[in-house]
Every structure is written in C-alpha cells, then in structure tokens.
Measured scan of single mutants.
Amino acid sequence: MSIQHFRVALIPFFAAFCLPVFAHPETLVKVKDAEDQLGARVGYIELDLNSGKILESFRPEERFPMMSTFKVLLCGAVLSRVDAGQEQLGRRIHYSQNDLVEYSPVTEKHLTDGMTVRELCSAAITMSDNTAANLLLTTIGGPKELTAFLHNMGDHVTRLDRWEPELNEAIPNDERDTTMPAAMATTLRKLLTGELLTLASRQQLIDWMEADKVAGPLLRSALPAGWFIADKSGAGERGSRGIIAALGPDGKPSRIVVIYTTGSQATMDERNRQIAEIGASLIKHW
C-alpha cells in the first residue's frame, strides 16, 4: 500500500482519535458579512469528516447552483462504474471539434489522439474542462443518470439537468442544476469515506481534487503551510461562485467545507476574496 493510499485508508482512524471539535460562531459572522459585502445569498456548511456531524452552517438547506462543483460527483459516478466493471479508466475516447464547448483548455489539445477516461476526469476536476465533463456525462448516460446515481446514494436534493455550459445559467428560483450545502457536503463525505467506492477509487477521487489547479484564489489562499486540501470550485452566471473541499491540518483532511453564493453584482475577484476570507476565519478558529 502506498503512503497516499495509507493516508486515505486511515482518515477515519486518525479522526477518531482527534480531540473533540467545537464550532466557532466567528466564522458564521464572516459568512454573514460576506453576504453584506456581496449583496447576495451565501450558503455555508462545515462537517466533521469522521462523524458527519454538522459543526457550523448557514442557509444549509437553500438551493444554490452547483456550477462546476458537480464534476466531482460526476467522476465519482464514473469511478463507481469502474468498480462495477462497467468502465475502464484506460479506455480512450475520441471526439471532434464539434464536441468542444466553451472553456476546454485540455480537451482542445487532444482532438487528434483523444483522451482516456482517467485523463478526462483529471481534466474535468483539476482544470474544470467543460468538454471533458460533457464527454464523461455521455459515458454514464447524461445528466439524468448522474441525478439517479445521487438518488441511489441517498441524495434526493442534488440534481443535474443540463450539460456544460448551460448548467451554469443560475436563474433565480430555478431548481435545475442545483444542490443544497448540506446535501453536497453529505454526498461528498460519502464519496470520500464511505463504502460506495473502493479504496482505490476513493484515493483516485481525492487525488484529482488535491491536484486542483484553478481554485488557488479561494480556500487555498488562506491555508497555512502543512495543511491538506482537496477541492473543486465552480463559477456561473449572475454572480455565482462555489467551492467544495476536504481539508485539515497535519497533512490530512478532517472536515468537509461547502460554500456557495449566487445573485451578486460583485466582480469575480471580490467573490473570490470573500470566500478566501471565510476560509481564513475557519482556519483561525479551527
């Protein structure tokens, strides 16, 4: 067993022997301040990774656009098919120029040779490549099948209805392509620590998230040296922004954090800054 596999296998073990965790309302004060600064709703939840206990939450059962955070769930569904012998990570998928959609920095470079399922998941999570996500959605049967996968996990809230990039439209009061912070946090925890996926697939999923290259201005910008984070960000229309993450000190994750916002007129930089400040408060009061 590799060191990384050992780390993920012992996530519940280490967490069980940690000192009790206590909620700190100071972080919620910052979440509410972010709402004021952005002029928009902000949803927040913080779960203990081992027990699933909610440590703090704000608007945990209000719907927010998922945006690209759905790509972690998508690759979880792909990995479940791999575990069941219905898919192979090494299978190569070929596609054409007509398949390319807006923001496809990886797939646009491989029109000639195609990409493997493993490479597509890596591109979808680490670079948020939209064509990679659409190609992977095709392998599982489309958005409705991802929703069905989530329902089978016990998540009857999260739903995907459309493809990239239309799913980022974020129309107010439109339930399409949305989740709730509580539902997303619980589902992410199941994917990373539950028995739904094999140990190898859980490790692969967290490795992809740990290698995320496009979430630097968010929670990662607030992390002290030595902290662990595996995350996936999302951005959408109407001032929408979000991030889902597993993080913790001492090089291992111990909490799940989900943050979503929508309806702001603020710039992307300002949305990023507010999420980073929430992260800084979380870490300060850990």
Rank of each mutant, 00 (worst) to 15 (best):
E108D: 13
L74V: 10
I229F: 04
G114T: 04
A34F: 08
V72D: 01
A225P: 13
T193C: 13
S201Y: 07
W227E: 01
K109R: 13
V258T: 08
E210M: 12
A230N: 00
M67K: 03
E108V: 14
E46F: 08
D174G: 06
E277Q: 12
T69K: 01
F70W: 08
D113H: 11
L199D: 12
R59C: 07
R41M: 10
Y260K: 01
Q265Y: 14
E62G: 07
M66Y: 04
R92P: 08
L137K: 00
F64C: 00
N152T: 13
S80L: 14
S104T: 06
T178R: 02
L79E: 00
A84Q: 14
A123L: 02
A280G: 13
L55T: 08
G216K: 08
Y44F: 11
M127C: 09
A276S: 12
D155H: 01
I206S: 10
V258G: 07
A148D: 13
R271N: 10
G141P: 03
E277M: 09
Q37H: 13
I283A: 09
K32M: 13
A235V: 07
E46T: 10
D177E: 03
C121M: 08
R241W: 02
N134F: 01
A200I: 11
G85C: 07
T193W: 13
I259Y: 04
F70A: 11
A77D: 08
M66P: 00
E119R: 05
Q97V: 15
P25F: 10
D48G: 06
L167K: 00
M184C: 05
R202V: 09
V117M: 11
R271F: 05
A183L: 07
F228C: 07
E210N: 09
L160V: 12
E169L: 11
E166S: 13
D48Q: 07
V72W: 06
E166P: 06
R63F: 07
E277K: 11
R41P: 12
N272M: 04
P143L: 06
E26H: 15
A133C: 05
D155K: 01
L188K: 03
I54S: 07
E26D: 11
L49H: 06
F228Y: 15
W208K: 01
K30A: 15
F149D: 06
R189N: 10
L191D: 02
G226Y: 07
K232N: 02
V31M: 07
R220C: 06
I206C: 10
L196M: 14
G263C: 08
